[in-house]
């Protein structure tokens, strides 16, 4: 099977998954007892039955569940997530404003994780059992074990308060593409990427050690190829296969981590918005963010699948 066909097949397979995501998201919010209208009603005992019905109509919580679902889905498909209850503003506007902030943070976290993990993993594997290997493994273990809210606070404490290198809060209206933004991204980005870097490095090291013992490595050496060709051409590509598999799962971790990290650093992304929306019971906002993150995770998995097939021809031909 050609790579193109493989990608096409995988892309098609994403559709039922996204459908499932929409059903689960909608179901969770609408089948659990206490819809937003009942909550409003509970807080304001003066609301009349007629007013309640109107509210339900307006917020789209009347009628049978399946019809509400279809309505909601058709709106979502055209990018309409409904309105905020308090302000009446379109939720989509809010999401599109916040999404780039979170993507920037997540990408920075990723780049940081990969930039640290891959070279360290290679170094540790090639120098297995030596001091550098042991040191990097100890660091990786600490990286995996540190909770990110704690790491975030620690970084703020050290770099912002003691050393004064970074401002504690990001400037509110600085556009993302402004070079200055990078400075503000650094601490939250490192915080969010550390755990991923640590797990990636461990997997990179393990899979590289395993691949280095493979017969094709001996065979490559027996052909007189220089060690750097053996490691960077032959072993690296094989080792990356397991790294990519892990990377897909880590994406979900980074997304989840963004909720905490954005709150700690007051980063104006979807994560901190989610916390706010939950506190204010903005159902439509919470649903919108849930859907967007779920789609992001599904897409990350799809990308990982494609990357996987690019790296390893055996996958394409299955």
């Amino acid at each position: 099977m050609s790579l193109r066909r493989f990608v096409l097949r995988r892309a098609l397979a994403v559709i039922p998954v996204l459908f499932g995501v929409s059903v689960v998201t909608f179901g969770l919010f609408h089948l659990t007892p206490g819809d937003p209208v009942s909550q409003v009603v509970a807080l304001n005992p003066d609301v009349s039955a007629a007013e309640e019905a109107r509210l339900r109509e307006r917020w789209g919580v009347s009628g049978p569940v399946w019809r509400r679902y279809l309505e909601w889905l058709s709106n979502v498909l055209v990018g309409d997530f409904g309105r905020e209850i308090r302000t009446g503003r379109a939720v989509s506007g809010l999401v599109w404003r916040r999404l780039p902030e979170t993507i920037a943070l997540g990408l920075f976290g990723w780049v940081f994780a990969v930039a640290i993990a891959i070279p360290t993993g290679i170094y540790a594997a090639v120098n297995k059992g030596k001091l550098g290997d042991v040191a990097s493994r100890v660091l990786a273990l600490s990286g995996v074990s540190l909770p990110n809210f704690w790491l975030g606070l620690l970084l703020i404490l050290v770099f912002s308060l003691y050393l004064g290198l970074f401002p504690v809060l990001p400037p509110s209206r600085l556009p993302l593409y402004h070079p200055e933004t990078l400075r503000y991204l650094l601490l939250p980005g490192v915080t969010i990427g550390t755990a991923a870097a640590a797990s990636l490095m461990r997997v990179m090291r393990t899979s590289m050690v395993e691949e280095l013992n493979a017969e094709y490595v001996t065979a490559a050496r027996a052909r007189g190829l220089p060690e750097r060709t053996v490691v960077f051409k032959h072993v690296l590509r094989n080792s990356l296969v397991s790294v990519v598999t892990l990377a897909a799962t880590l994406t979900a971790g980074i997304v989840a981590g963004s909720v905490v990290v954005e709150s700690v650093f007051n980063w104006p992304g979807l994560g901190s918005e989610l916390v706010r929306a939950i506190n204010r019971r903005e159902v439509n906002v919470v649903m919108a963010i849930t859907v967007v993150t779920a789609v992001a995770v599904v897409l990350a998995n799809f990308l990982a699948d494609v990357l996987y097939a690019v790296l390893d021809p055996r996958i394409r031909y299955d």
Partner: peptide
């Protein structure tokens, strides 16, 4: 290294394993 592969070649028991699967 300049002798290996050039003046002395090697053939392995498990030929499939001796070939890199991704190239």
């Amino acid at each position: 290294r300049s002798v290996r592969g050039d003046e002395i070649g090697m053939v392995f028991q498990d030929a499939r394993a001796a070939l890199n699967p991704v190239y």
